[in-house]
């Protein structure tokens, strides 16, 4: 297939995934901020949402401080934030439009329909309830798009590149949450914050929609190191780093088999997965959770760049 087509499919998938991720962050933050102040973590939850979204420098250039109003506006609707939910969906739709013939009608419908409906949401008049409905709607768009891809696409390179987009973006998003929140997962903070941190931990779980999954996997109350284990190493948990790399490696291998040629992206991704498979959460804590996450973010974007070099340009 055309490199540009593959590139646009890949980015369409990434932007839809990113829109959903932003919706989850906003949803979890709203929940956290509505708790009485001594449960919520000192009113810094909106700063934390901005940091997690990865657009802190643009945000603080436009706003002196973070509060519900301006973070909601910036992350969800702002035309000035290239990664606002609105822009993510618009860019995804623009990309999809350019490669419409490579997508199924259902996938196009999901994005084009979303783009048409998006105009109806007026952020100026939006109360909390309407905003919550908007976030639900965003998650639904992503589910519909992803579900359409899964159920209707031919299993060929177009599908595999879309899965790579989802994998790389998910790995990046989950790692960002950990990057911002790692300190509340460290063992010593338990003494500092005590059980008040429980709400921070559950917020993290909600951001990756794993609040229920946690209990099924570990069958015990929420413990910070297990939250880290779930998000980093658990291959059953769809948004964990390890599961993301399962996806990336599998689809890179399918592409390599179909094209009859392996390259640097296959090798790099396999090395990432091997590292995650061999790691134990204790070891990660011992050698430094923050360093681990920082390295991961760097390596993940390097894999993304290698995929682009090998196939997309």
């Amino acid at each position: 297939m055309l490199s540009r087509t593959a590139d646009q499919i890949y980015w369409t998938a990434r932007y839809v995934e990113r829109a959903e991720f932003l919706a989850r962050i906003l949803e979890a933050t709203l929940r956290l901020s509505s708790l009485p102040s001594n449960y919520g973590g000192a009113g810094t939850e909106w700063d934390s949402a901005v940091l997690t979204s990865g657009c802190a420098s643009a945000f603080y250039k436009a706003h002196p401080y973070a509060d519900e109003h301006n973070v909601r506006e910036f992350l969800a609707f702002s035309p000035d934030n290239p990664s606002s939910i609105r822009n993510c969906l618009a860019i995804a739709r623009t990309n999809a439009r350019a490669v419409r013939t490579a997508l199924t009608v259902e996938m196009w419908d999901a994005l084009n329909g979303a783009w048409l409906e998006l105009r109806q949401f007026d952020s100026k008049k939006m109360g909390r309830e309407d905003f919550a409905r908007f976030l639900d709607w965003v998650k639904n768009v992503s589910l519909t798009f992803d579900g359409s891809a899964y159920r209707t696409m031919l299993r060929n390179d177009a599908y595999w590149f879309s899965r790579l987009g989802v994998g790389i973006e998910r790995a990046d998003n989950t790692a960002r949450i950990l990057d911002v929140k790692y300190h509340v997962l460290l063992p010593e903070t338990e003494q500092v914050g005590g059980s008040l941190d429980y709400f921070q931990w559950t917020t993290i779980l909600r951001e990756v929609s794993a609040h229920t999954a946690y209990h099924w996997v570990y069958r015990q109350s929420v413990q910070p190191w297990l939250v880290a284990d779930l998000l980093i190493l658990n291959r059953q948990m769809p948004r964990s780093l390890a599961a993301s790399y399962d996806t990336i490696v599998r689809h890179l291998d399918l592409i390599a088999d179909a094209y009859g040629r392996r390259g640097p992206s296959q090798r790099q991704a396999r090395a990432m997965l091997d590292k995650l498979a061999a790691a134990k959460i204790d070891g990660i804590f011992q050698s430094g959770l923050h360093e681990f996450i920082t390295d991961f973010l760097r390596d993940n974007s390097r894999v993304g760049a290698t995929i682009a070099e090998q196939y997309l340009i």
């Binding site: 055309l2 490199s3 540009r4 590149f161 592409i255 094209y259």
Partner: peptide, 12 residues
Amino acid sequence: VRDDVVYMRTTE
């Protein structure tokens, strides 16, 4: 175009 032949850039 290379050597007066047109090519398209593909993933392969």
